[in-house]
Each structure stands twice: as structure tokens, then as C-alpha cells.
């Protein structure tokens, strides 16, 4: 029994060592989908709590949180997170991206610009793009992501 366990540990160590050599991963990404629910505490105060997106019906707003974590030993620079707005969802116009420049695409990720500069064609001309027309959201980090540190960005989208 003991011997078998040891063998597994040794195998696992070998495996990790080999992958680390072949492809060094410095930044890990994590995505979460959550709902915001109003909770009344014992003092009768209402607070907003986030719960996993378990019950999602049309019209529900989902908070997506994407976290980049530097698991390497060198600073990661020019960090750019890109998130296509999921199919069946409409971006609501609510985005959080402290320490990052947030740009959007309305053409399926071909071009990105700040929200105020985005237009979509209407008739012969164009009009400001409504948030639900956004196809991609991009966060370009201002600063390097230092080893051991993590940075999260968020956006909200409504289920069609």
C-alpha cells in the first residue's frame, strides 16, 4: 500500500517536471459565473451577495469574473485578457477593470476601441453602438503582473 502511494507521487513529480520544461506557464486564468442576490441580514440590512450561477433564467444578469494569476517567477508584461461575450448573452454595459484599459469590439473581435468610439451601421450612416451589440471585451493591463500576484476583471451580461 505504502509502496504504491510512493510510486504514484514519484510518477506525478516526473510528469509535472516534464511539462514544466516543455511549456512554462507563467500566468493562470480563472473564470467564474455568478449571480447577485439580495440578502437581508439579522439587522434587516440588505446586502448583495454573489452566488454561483445555479438558477439562470432569461433576463437574469450574470457577473463574469476573470482572474489572471502570475504563477511564474518573472513579471508578466503586456497582459491582455480577452473575453468574447458568450452566445445567448447581452453585455449590459457594466464592466470593472481597475488598472487596465478596457476596450470593446462590435465586429467579432477584429477591431477594438473604447466604448465611446464604437458605432454600428444604421441605414446609410452609423449610430453609437449599444452595449448589447458588443461582441468582445478586452482588458489591457497598465502594469506588469508580478509573480505571486493576481488581478481580477469583471463584466455583466444578461441572458437573452
Amino acid at each position: 500500500m505504502m509502496i504504491r502511494k510512493l510510486a504514484i507521487v514519484a510518477l506525478a513529480a516526473l510528469f509535472f517536471a516534464s511539462t514544466a520544461e516543455a511549456k512554462q506557464k507563467h500566468v493562470e486564468l480563472e473564470a467564474k459565473a455568478e449571480l447577485e442576490v439580495e440578502v437581508v441580514n439579522e439587522d434587516g440590512e440588505k446586502t448583495i451577495q454573489r452566488v454561483p450561477a445555479v438558477k439562470v433564467m432569461p433576463g437574469e444578469v450574470v457577473v463574469y469574473t476573470i482572474t489572471a494569476r502570475n504563477v511564474g517567477e518573472e513579471p508578466a508584461t503586456n497582459v491582455v485578457i480577452t473575453d468574447p461575450v458568450p452566445e445567448h448573452m447581452d453585455y449590459t454595459g457594466s464592466v470593472t477593470g481597475d488598472g487596465a484599459r478596457v476596450t470593446f469590439s462590435v465586429d467579432g473581435g477584429k477591431t477594438y476601441d473604447v466604448a465611446s468610439a464604437l458605432t454600428v451601421p444604421v441605414g446609410g450612416g452609423s449610430k453609437p453602438a449599444p452595449p448589447e451589440d458588443y461582441t468582445h471585451i478586452r482588458w489591457t493591463f497598465n502594469d506588469a503582473l508580478e509573480p505571486g500576484s493576481a488581478h481580477s476583471v469583471e463584466f455583466r451580461a444578461r441572458l437573452q
Binding site: V27, L29, A31, Y64, I66, N78, V80, I81, D83, P86
Partner: peptide
């Protein structure tokens, strides 16, 4: 409904 986020970055000036 699937959401997939992507991250691009450099280390020591090299794209990863």
C-alpha cells in the same frame, strides 16, 4: 452558455 476568457502576455519581452 459557455464563457471562455483568454489571456496573452509577455515574459522578458517574449510572447508566451
Amino acid at each position: 452558455v459557455l464563457n471562455t476568457a483568454l489571456v496573452d502576455y509577455d515574459v522578458n519581452g517574449t510572447g508566451q
